[in-house]
Design a protein around this nucleic acid. Structure first.
Length: 413
RNA sequence: GUGGCUGUAGCUCAAUUGGUAGAGUGUCGGACUGUGGAUCCGAAUGUUGUGGGUUCAAGCCCCAUCAGCCACCCCA
Protein backbone atom coordinates (compact mmCIF):
# COMPACT_ATOMS: atom_id res chain seq x y z
CA UNK A 1 0.00 0.00 0.00
CA UNK A 2 1.18 3.49 -0.80
CA UNK A 3 0.47 5.81 2.07
CA UNK A 4 0.44 9.54 2.40
CA UNK A 5 3.59 11.52 3.03
CA UNK A 6 4.49 12.07 6.67
CA UNK A 7 2.88 15.18 8.08
CA UNK A 8 0.13 15.41 5.46
CA UNK A 9 -3.57 14.70 5.78
CA UNK A 10 -6.50 13.62 3.67
CA UNK A 11 -9.53 15.73 4.47
CA UNK A 12 -12.54 13.56 3.78
CA UNK A 13 -15.20 13.38 6.45
CA UNK A 14 -14.15 16.80 7.72
CA UNK A 15 -14.39 18.60 4.41
CA UNK A 16 -17.71 20.06 5.50
CA UNK A 17 -16.04 21.57 8.57
CA UNK A 18 -13.26 23.02 6.45
CA UNK A 19 -15.72 24.57 4.04
CA UNK A 20 -17.51 26.18 6.96
CA UNK A 21 -14.38 27.63 8.53
CA UNK A 22 -12.99 28.82 5.21
CA UNK A 23 -16.35 30.29 4.31
CA UNK A 24 -16.79 32.28 7.51
CA UNK A 25 -13.30 33.76 7.42
CA UNK A 26 -13.46 34.55 3.74
CA UNK A 27 -16.75 36.34 4.18
CA UNK A 28 -15.27 38.64 6.80
CA UNK A 29 -12.32 39.43 4.52
CA UNK A 30 -14.61 40.15 1.60
CA UNK A 31 -16.92 42.32 3.67
CA UNK A 32 -13.91 44.40 4.65
CA UNK A 33 -13.16 44.81 0.92
CA UNK A 34 -10.18 42.52 0.67
CA UNK A 35 -9.68 40.78 -2.65
CA UNK A 36 -8.21 37.34 -3.09
CA UNK A 37 -4.82 36.69 -4.65
CA UNK A 38 -3.83 33.21 -5.67
CA UNK A 39 -0.15 32.71 -6.17
CA UNK A 40 1.67 29.50 -7.19
CA UNK A 41 2.47 27.10 -4.38
CA UNK A 42 6.08 27.02 -5.51
CA UNK A 43 8.43 29.91 -6.04
CA UNK A 44 12.06 30.62 -6.73
CA UNK A 45 14.02 29.68 -3.59
CA UNK A 46 15.60 33.10 -3.63
CA UNK A 47 12.26 34.73 -2.78
CA UNK A 48 12.21 33.13 0.65
CA UNK A 49 15.92 33.46 1.27
CA UNK A 50 15.56 37.19 0.79
CA UNK A 51 12.02 37.67 2.08
CA UNK A 52 11.78 35.43 5.11
CA UNK A 53 15.47 35.78 5.91
CA UNK A 54 18.51 33.61 5.45
CA UNK A 55 19.14 33.27 9.16
CA UNK A 56 15.65 32.08 10.08
CA UNK A 57 14.89 28.47 10.99
CA UNK A 58 12.33 28.36 8.22
CA UNK A 59 14.96 29.01 5.56
CA UNK A 60 17.79 27.21 7.32
CA UNK A 61 16.11 23.88 7.91
CA UNK A 62 12.43 23.77 7.10
CA UNK A 63 12.05 24.43 3.39
CA UNK A 64 11.08 21.93 0.72
CA UNK A 65 13.66 22.94 -1.84
CA UNK A 66 14.50 21.04 -5.01
CA UNK A 67 15.92 21.55 -8.44
CA UNK A 68 13.56 21.22 -11.39
CA UNK A 69 14.49 19.67 -14.72
CA UNK A 70 15.63 23.04 -15.98
CA UNK A 71 18.10 23.41 -13.12
CA UNK A 72 16.10 26.10 -11.29
CA UNK A 73 16.04 26.05 -7.50
CA UNK A 74 12.39 25.77 -6.50
CA UNK A 75 10.83 25.96 -3.03
CA UNK A 76 7.35 24.95 -1.91
CA UNK A 77 6.07 28.08 -0.19
CA UNK A 78 6.57 27.95 3.59
CA UNK A 79 4.43 31.06 4.13
CA UNK A 80 2.15 33.36 2.18
CA UNK A 81 3.38 36.91 2.57
CA UNK A 82 6.54 36.83 0.46
CA UNK A 83 4.73 35.31 -2.55
CA UNK A 84 1.95 37.89 -2.36
CA UNK A 85 4.51 40.69 -2.22
CA UNK A 86 6.36 39.18 -5.15
CA UNK A 87 3.13 39.20 -7.13
CA UNK A 88 2.46 42.77 -6.04
CA UNK A 89 5.82 43.94 -7.33
CA UNK A 90 5.88 41.80 -10.45
CA UNK A 91 2.44 42.94 -11.58
CA UNK A 92 3.30 46.54 -10.84
CA UNK A 93 0.27 46.89 -8.61
CA UNK A 94 1.58 50.10 -7.04
CA UNK A 95 0.38 51.73 -10.23
CA UNK A 96 -3.21 50.99 -9.17
CA UNK A 97 -2.75 53.15 -6.10
CA UNK A 98 -2.36 52.47 -2.42
CA UNK A 99 -3.45 51.01 -0.12
CA UNK A 100 -4.29 47.59 -1.44
CA UNK A 101 -5.93 44.89 0.58
CA UNK A 102 -5.48 41.25 -0.27
CA UNK A 103 -6.30 37.92 1.26
CA UNK A 104 -4.88 34.53 0.38
CA UNK A 105 -5.64 30.98 1.35
CA UNK A 106 -3.92 27.72 0.69
CA UNK A 107 -1.43 25.04 1.67
CA UNK A 108 1.99 25.91 3.04
CA UNK A 109 4.91 23.52 3.45
CA UNK A 110 7.53 23.20 6.14
CA UNK A 111 9.79 20.26 6.81
CA UNK A 112 9.27 19.86 10.56
CA UNK A 113 8.67 16.98 12.91
CA UNK A 114 4.89 16.54 12.95
CA UNK A 115 2.87 16.65 16.14
CA UNK A 116 -0.61 17.73 17.15
CA UNK A 117 -1.33 21.00 15.35
CA UNK A 118 1.86 20.83 13.34
CA UNK A 119 1.97 19.35 9.88
CA UNK A 120 4.31 19.45 6.92
CA UNK A 121 1.51 20.55 4.68
CA UNK A 122 -0.77 22.93 6.53
CA UNK A 123 -3.17 25.67 5.56
CA UNK A 124 -3.03 29.37 6.17
CA UNK A 125 -5.54 32.09 5.57
CA UNK A 126 -3.97 35.51 5.64
CA UNK A 127 -4.58 39.13 4.83
CA UNK A 128 -2.15 41.80 3.68
CA UNK A 129 -2.71 45.52 3.94
CA UNK A 130 -0.20 47.10 1.59
CA UNK A 131 0.93 50.69 1.60
CA UNK A 132 -0.02 52.26 4.91
CA UNK A 133 2.58 53.27 7.48
CA UNK A 134 -0.16 54.41 9.86
CA UNK A 135 -0.84 52.77 13.24
CA UNK A 136 -4.45 52.69 12.11
CA UNK A 137 -3.51 50.00 9.60
CA UNK A 138 -2.05 47.81 12.37
CA UNK A 139 -5.19 48.20 14.44
CA UNK A 140 -7.37 47.53 11.42
CA UNK A 141 -5.49 44.31 10.70
CA UNK A 142 -5.98 43.12 14.25
CA UNK A 143 -9.62 44.13 14.14
CA UNK A 144 -10.22 42.02 11.03
CA UNK A 145 -8.54 39.06 12.71
CA UNK A 146 -10.76 39.44 15.76
CA UNK A 147 -13.87 39.70 13.59
CA UNK A 148 -12.88 36.46 11.88
CA UNK A 149 -12.54 34.68 15.21
CA UNK A 150 -15.88 36.12 16.28
CA UNK A 151 -17.55 34.90 13.10
CA UNK A 152 -16.46 31.42 14.17
CA UNK A 153 -17.68 32.10 17.72
CA UNK A 154 -14.28 31.19 19.14
CA UNK A 155 -13.81 32.47 22.69
CA UNK A 156 -10.74 31.14 24.45
CA UNK A 157 -8.04 32.97 22.54
CA UNK A 158 -5.58 35.56 23.79
CA UNK A 159 -4.09 38.44 21.84
CA UNK A 160 -0.53 39.43 22.58
CA UNK A 161 1.25 42.35 21.00
CA UNK A 162 4.70 43.80 21.01
CA UNK A 163 6.87 46.17 19.08
CA UNK A 164 10.17 44.96 17.71
CA UNK A 165 11.35 48.45 16.78
CA UNK A 166 12.97 49.43 13.53
CA UNK A 167 16.42 50.16 12.10
CA UNK A 168 16.78 53.19 14.36
CA UNK A 169 16.30 51.47 17.67
CA UNK A 170 16.60 47.73 17.29
CA UNK A 171 20.40 47.74 16.94
CA UNK A 172 20.72 49.54 20.27
CA UNK A 173 18.40 47.08 21.89
CA UNK A 174 20.37 44.15 20.48
CA UNK A 175 23.52 45.71 21.94
CA UNK A 176 21.84 46.09 25.33
CA UNK A 177 20.78 42.45 25.25
CA UNK A 178 24.29 41.32 24.38
CA UNK A 179 25.66 43.32 27.27
CA UNK A 180 23.12 41.84 29.60
CA UNK A 181 23.62 38.22 28.58
CA UNK A 182 27.40 38.39 28.23
CA UNK A 183 28.23 37.50 31.86
CA UNK A 184 25.77 34.56 31.71
CA UNK A 185 27.00 33.26 28.38
CA UNK A 186 28.69 30.16 29.78
CA UNK A 187 25.56 29.21 31.76
CA UNK A 188 23.20 29.40 28.80
CA UNK A 189 21.86 26.31 27.08
CA UNK A 190 23.63 25.16 23.92
CA UNK A 191 20.89 26.50 21.68
CA UNK A 192 21.11 29.89 23.30
CA UNK A 193 24.85 30.08 22.82
CA UNK A 194 24.21 29.87 19.09
CA UNK A 195 21.28 32.28 19.30
CA UNK A 196 23.46 34.80 21.11
CA UNK A 197 25.39 35.37 17.91
CA UNK A 198 22.76 34.66 15.33
CA UNK A 199 19.49 36.04 16.68
CA UNK A 200 19.75 37.23 20.23
CA UNK A 201 16.06 38.18 20.50
CA UNK A 202 15.31 34.48 20.62
CA UNK A 203 16.92 34.20 24.05
CA UNK A 204 13.87 35.95 25.44
CA UNK A 205 11.47 33.11 24.77
CA UNK A 206 13.81 30.22 25.61
CA UNK A 207 12.16 27.96 28.18
CA UNK A 208 15.42 26.69 29.64
CA UNK A 209 16.96 30.07 30.25
CA UNK A 210 13.72 31.79 31.20
CA UNK A 211 15.19 32.92 34.52
CA UNK A 212 17.61 35.26 32.76
CA UNK A 213 14.89 36.67 30.53
CA UNK A 214 13.03 38.05 33.54
CA UNK A 215 15.65 40.67 34.29
CA UNK A 216 16.59 41.31 30.67
CA UNK A 217 16.22 44.75 29.12
CA UNK A 218 12.83 45.26 27.53
CA UNK A 219 12.44 46.38 23.94
CA UNK A 220 9.71 48.77 25.01
CA UNK A 221 12.31 50.76 26.96
CA UNK A 222 14.53 51.07 23.91
CA UNK A 223 12.04 52.10 21.24
CA UNK A 224 12.91 55.27 19.37
CA UNK A 225 10.39 58.11 19.40
CA UNK A 226 8.87 57.06 16.09
CA UNK A 227 8.38 53.46 17.13
CA UNK A 228 7.14 54.38 20.56
CA UNK A 229 4.52 56.78 19.25
CA UNK A 230 3.46 54.23 16.68
CA UNK A 231 3.09 51.50 19.29
CA UNK A 232 1.20 53.79 21.66
CA UNK A 233 -1.24 54.73 18.94
CA UNK A 234 -1.83 51.10 17.98
CA UNK A 235 -2.61 50.35 21.61
CA UNK A 236 -4.90 53.35 21.85
CA UNK A 237 -6.90 52.20 18.82
CA UNK A 238 -7.23 48.77 20.32
CA UNK A 239 -8.43 50.29 23.58
CA UNK A 240 -11.00 52.36 21.74
CA UNK A 241 -12.23 49.25 19.94
CA UNK A 242 -12.45 47.41 23.28
CA UNK A 243 -10.06 44.77 22.03
CA UNK A 244 -8.37 42.96 24.88
CA UNK A 245 -4.65 42.40 24.56
CA UNK A 246 -1.55 41.90 26.56
CA UNK A 247 1.77 43.56 25.80
CA UNK A 248 4.30 40.76 25.79
CA UNK A 249 7.92 41.87 25.29
CA UNK A 250 8.99 38.29 24.66
CA UNK A 251 7.12 37.97 21.38
CA UNK A 252 9.76 37.46 18.76
CA UNK A 253 8.54 36.32 15.42
CA UNK A 254 10.46 33.80 13.41
CA UNK A 255 10.43 35.75 10.19
CA UNK A 256 12.99 38.48 9.65
CA UNK A 257 10.76 40.87 7.79
CA UNK A 258 8.82 42.19 10.76
CA UNK A 259 9.29 45.77 11.95
CA UNK A 260 7.49 47.59 14.73
CA UNK A 261 4.19 45.90 15.56
CA UNK A 262 4.06 42.13 15.96
CA UNK A 263 1.19 40.14 17.42
CA UNK A 264 0.04 36.62 18.11
CA UNK A 265 -3.22 34.88 18.82
CA UNK A 266 -2.74 32.07 21.29
CA UNK A 267 -5.12 29.33 22.25
CA UNK A 268 -3.57 27.96 25.45
CA UNK A 269 -5.39 24.63 25.67
CA UNK A 270 -3.97 23.46 22.35
CA UNK A 271 -0.75 22.35 24.02
CA UNK A 272 2.68 23.11 22.64
CA UNK A 273 1.41 24.31 19.27
CA UNK A 274 -0.89 26.96 20.62
CA UNK A 275 -0.44 29.84 18.18
CA UNK A 276 -3.55 29.94 16.04
CA UNK A 277 -2.52 33.06 14.19
CA UNK A 278 0.09 35.73 14.03
CA UNK A 279 1.38 38.65 12.09
CA UNK A 280 2.74 42.12 12.16
CA UNK A 281 4.12 45.04 10.23
CA UNK A 282 6.75 44.66 7.53
CA UNK A 283 7.86 48.06 6.36
CA UNK A 284 10.97 46.93 4.51
CA UNK A 285 9.94 43.66 2.88
CA UNK A 286 8.72 45.02 -0.45
CA UNK A 287 11.84 47.12 -0.81
CA UNK A 288 13.93 44.09 0.09
CA UNK A 289 12.31 42.18 -2.74
CA UNK A 290 13.04 44.88 -5.28
CA UNK A 291 9.92 47.04 -5.10
CA UNK A 292 9.47 50.61 -3.97
CA UNK A 293 9.48 51.29 -0.24
CA UNK A 294 5.95 50.28 0.73
CA UNK A 295 5.15 49.87 4.42
CA UNK A 296 2.58 47.13 5.06
CA UNK A 297 0.91 44.94 7.68
CA UNK A 298 -0.56 41.48 7.62
CA UNK A 299 -1.31 38.30 9.50
CA UNK A 300 -2.32 34.69 8.97
CA UNK A 301 -4.37 32.04 10.70
CA UNK A 302 -3.51 28.34 10.76
CA UNK A 303 -6.69 26.59 9.70
CA UNK A 304 -5.82 23.23 11.26
CA UNK A 305 -5.27 24.85 14.64
CA UNK A 306 -8.39 26.94 14.32
CA UNK A 307 -10.38 23.77 13.73
CA UNK A 308 -8.73 22.07 16.73
CA UNK A 309 -9.65 25.04 18.92
CA UNK A 310 -13.23 25.11 17.63
CA UNK A 311 -13.45 21.40 18.40
CA UNK A 312 -12.43 22.03 22.00
CA UNK A 313 -15.19 24.60 22.36
CA UNK A 314 -17.69 22.43 20.52
CA UNK A 315 -18.29 25.16 17.98
CA UNK A 316 -18.02 23.06 14.85
CA UNK A 317 -21.10 22.97 12.63
CA UNK A 318 -23.39 20.01 13.09
CA UNK A 319 -24.27 17.66 10.29
CA UNK A 320 -27.30 18.68 8.25
CA UNK A 321 -29.23 15.90 6.59
CA UNK A 322 -30.45 15.85 3.01
CA UNK A 323 -33.96 16.95 2.04
CA UNK A 324 -35.20 13.94 0.14
CA UNK A 325 -34.21 10.35 -0.53
CA UNK A 326 -36.00 8.89 -3.52
CA UNK A 327 -36.75 5.17 -3.42
CA UNK A 328 -37.50 2.82 -6.29
CA UNK A 329 -39.43 -0.32 -5.37
CA UNK A 330 -38.39 -2.25 -8.48
CA UNK A 331 -36.03 -1.95 -11.38
CA UNK A 332 -38.89 -0.61 -13.47
CA UNK A 333 -38.97 2.63 -11.46
CA UNK A 334 -35.22 3.35 -11.36
CA UNK A 335 -35.30 5.63 -14.38
CA UNK A 336 -38.22 7.59 -12.94
CA UNK A 337 -36.26 8.06 -9.72
CA UNK A 338 -33.37 9.51 -11.71
CA UNK A 339 -35.71 11.88 -13.51
CA UNK A 340 -37.21 13.13 -10.26
CA UNK A 341 -33.76 13.54 -8.70
CA UNK A 342 -32.67 15.56 -11.70
CA UNK A 343 -35.61 17.94 -11.34
CA UNK A 344 -35.56 18.37 -7.58
CA UNK A 345 -31.79 18.75 -7.31
CA UNK A 346 -32.31 22.22 -8.72
CA UNK A 347 -33.87 23.22 -5.40
CA UNK A 348 -33.03 20.61 -2.77
CA UNK A 349 -30.40 18.21 -1.58
CA UNK A 350 -31.53 14.84 -2.82
CA UNK A 351 -30.11 11.36 -3.03
CA UNK A 352 -31.04 7.97 -4.42
CA UNK A 353 -29.83 4.40 -4.41
CA UNK A 354 -27.35 3.52 -7.13
CA UNK A 355 -26.62 0.03 -5.78
CA UNK A 356 -30.02 -1.34 -6.84
CA UNK A 357 -30.68 -2.51 -3.31
CA UNK A 358 -33.91 -3.51 -1.58
CA UNK A 359 -36.53 -1.02 -0.43
CA UNK A 360 -35.55 -1.76 3.13
CA UNK A 361 -31.92 -0.88 2.59
CA UNK A 362 -32.93 2.23 0.71
CA UNK A 363 -34.77 3.35 3.81
CA UNK A 364 -31.68 2.57 5.87
CA UNK A 365 -29.62 4.74 3.59
CA UNK A 366 -32.17 7.53 3.92
CA UNK A 367 -31.89 7.33 7.71
CA UNK A 368 -28.15 7.31 7.57
CA UNK A 369 -28.16 10.49 5.54
CA UNK A 370 -30.67 11.97 7.96
CA UNK A 371 -33.13 12.63 5.16
CA UNK A 372 -36.14 14.81 6.04
CA UNK A 373 -38.37 12.94 3.61
CA UNK A 374 -38.39 9.82 1.50
CA UNK A 375 -40.35 9.43 -1.69
CA UNK A 376 -41.41 5.91 -2.59
CA UNK A 377 -42.13 5.05 -6.19
CA UNK A 378 -43.49 1.66 -7.13
CA UNK A 379 -45.79 0.20 -9.72
CA UNK A 380 -48.91 1.72 -8.13
CA UNK A 381 -47.40 5.18 -7.91
CA UNK A 382 -46.34 5.04 -11.53
CA UNK A 383 -49.89 4.13 -12.52
CA UNK A 384 -51.70 6.69 -10.37
CA UNK A 385 -49.18 9.52 -10.56
CA UNK A 386 -49.41 9.90 -6.76
CA UNK A 387 -46.12 9.26 -4.97
CA UNK A 388 -45.80 8.18 -1.37
CA UNK A 389 -44.02 10.87 0.62
CA UNK A 390 -42.87 9.93 4.10
CA UNK A 391 -41.80 12.36 6.77
CA UNK A 392 -38.86 10.61 8.41
CA UNK A 393 -39.13 12.54 11.68
CA UNK A 394 -42.69 11.55 12.61
CA UNK A 395 -43.19 8.66 10.20
CA UNK A 396 -46.37 10.05 8.62
CA UNK A 397 -47.07 9.25 4.98
CA UNK A 398 -48.99 11.22 2.41
CA UNK A 399 -49.85 10.73 -1.22
CA UNK A 400 -48.83 13.60 -3.43
CA UNK A 401 -48.28 14.55 -7.02
CA UNK A 402 -44.89 15.49 -8.37
CA UNK A 403 -46.06 19.08 -8.82
CA UNK A 404 -46.78 19.37 -5.07
CA UNK A 405 -43.33 18.21 -3.99
CA UNK A 406 -41.53 21.50 -4.32
CA UNK A 407 -44.05 23.28 -2.15
CA UNK A 408 -44.11 20.59 0.55
CA UNK A 409 -40.33 20.29 0.71
CA UNK A 410 -39.97 24.04 0.92
CA UNK A 411 -41.97 24.18 4.12
CA UNK A 412 -40.11 24.05 7.42
CA UNK A 413 -36.36 24.47 7.50
C1' G B 1 17.36 17.69 14.09
C1' U B 2 17.04 15.51 19.79
C1' G B 3 14.48 12.55 23.63
C1' G B 4 10.16 9.51 25.34
C1' C B 5 5.49 6.56 24.47
C1' U B 6 2.63 3.74 20.96
C1' G B 7 1.39 0.57 16.40
C1' U B 8 -3.62 -6.11 16.42
C1' A B 9 -10.38 -6.15 11.53
C1' G B 10 -12.94 0.29 8.51
C1' C B 11 -13.13 2.28 13.99
C1' U B 12 -12.34 1.37 19.62
C1' C B 13 -9.73 -2.31 21.98
C1' A B 14 -8.82 -7.88 24.10
C1' A B 15 -5.29 -12.10 23.80
C1' U B 16 -2.44 -15.39 31.33
C1' U B 17 4.77 -16.81 32.39
C1' G B 18 6.16 -16.66 24.35
C1' G B 19 1.77 -21.98 22.55
C1' U B 20 -0.28 -20.01 16.44
C1' A B 21 -5.91 -14.00 16.86
C1' G B 22 -11.09 -12.44 19.54
C1' A B 23 -15.02 -8.87 21.24
C1' G B 24 -17.81 -4.47 20.67
C1' U B 25 -19.03 -1.21 16.89
C1' G B 26 -19.48 -0.35 11.78
C1' U B 27 -20.48 -2.85 6.80
C1' C B 28 -23.63 -6.37 3.94
C1' G B 29 -27.75 -9.85 4.00
C1' G B 30 -32.06 -12.12 6.43
C1' A B 31 -36.31 -12.43 10.10
C1' C B 32 -40.25 -8.38 7.61
C1' U B 33 -40.36 -10.92 -1.06
C1' G B 34 -43.03 -2.07 -0.70
C1' U B 35 -40.83 0.97 4.81
C1' G B 36 -35.57 3.30 8.21
C1' G B 37 -33.27 4.84 12.94
C1' A B 38 -35.22 -0.55 18.01
C1' U B 39 -34.51 -6.15 18.53
C1' C B 40 -32.85 -11.01 16.97
C1' C B 41 -30.07 -14.23 13.44
C1' G B 42 -26.24 -14.87 9.86
C1' A B 43 -21.96 -13.39 6.68
C1' A B 44 -17.50 -10.95 5.05
C1' U B 45 -12.99 -8.48 6.48
C1' G B 46 -6.33 -9.39 9.55
C1' U B 47 0.68 -11.25 5.72
C1' U B 48 -0.77 -8.47 14.24
C1' G B 49 2.86 -1.24 10.50
C1' U B 50 7.27 -3.25 7.56
C1' G B 51 11.98 -6.14 7.33
C1' G B 52 15.29 -9.13 9.89
C1' G B 53 16.83 -12.04 14.39
C1' U B 54 16.26 -15.43 18.88
C1' U B 55 13.13 -19.94 19.70
C1' C B 56 10.48 -26.42 18.70
C1' A B 57 7.01 -22.16 18.76
C1' A B 58 6.70 -14.75 18.39
C1' G B 59 1.04 -10.20 18.44
C1' C B 60 4.23 -10.75 22.93
C1' C B 61 11.48 -11.01 23.42
C1' C B 62 15.84 -8.44 20.47
C1' C B 63 17.55 -5.18 16.28
C1' A B 64 16.43 -2.06 12.28
C1' U B 65 12.93 0.77 9.68
C1' C B 66 8.30 3.42 8.81
C1' A B 67 4.18 5.98 10.85
C1' G B 68 1.33 8.38 14.86
C1' C B 69 1.35 10.89 19.53
C1' C B 70 4.00 13.89 23.52
C1' A B 71 7.97 17.13 24.83
C1' C B 72 12.29 19.96 23.00
C1' C B 73 12.91 23.04 18.88
C1' C B 74 10.02 26.03 15.71
C1' C B 75 5.65 28.32 14.38
C1' A B 76 0.21 28.83 11.96
Amino acid sequence: MISKIKGTNDIIEDSRIWQYVEGQIKKVAQNFSFTEVRTPIFEATELFNRGVGNETDIVQKEMYTFEDKGGRSITLRPEGTAPVMRAFIENNLTSKGLPQKFFYYGPMFRYERPQAGRLRQFHQFGIELIGSPAPLADAFTILVAIEMLKSLKLDGFKLRINSTGDDNCRPQYVEALKEYYKPHLTDLCDDCKVRYERNILRLLDCKIDAKYAIGAPKITDYLCDGCKTHFDLVKRYLDELNIEYEVDPSIVRGLDYYTRTVFEFKYPSLGAQDAIGGGGRYDKLIEELGGAKTPSVGFAFGIERLILALGIENKLPSFEGIDLYIIAVDKAQRAEVLRIAKELSKYFRVDLDIMERSVKSQFSSASKEDARFTLVIGEEEMKSGFYTLKNMKDGTQTECKFSDLIEILSKER
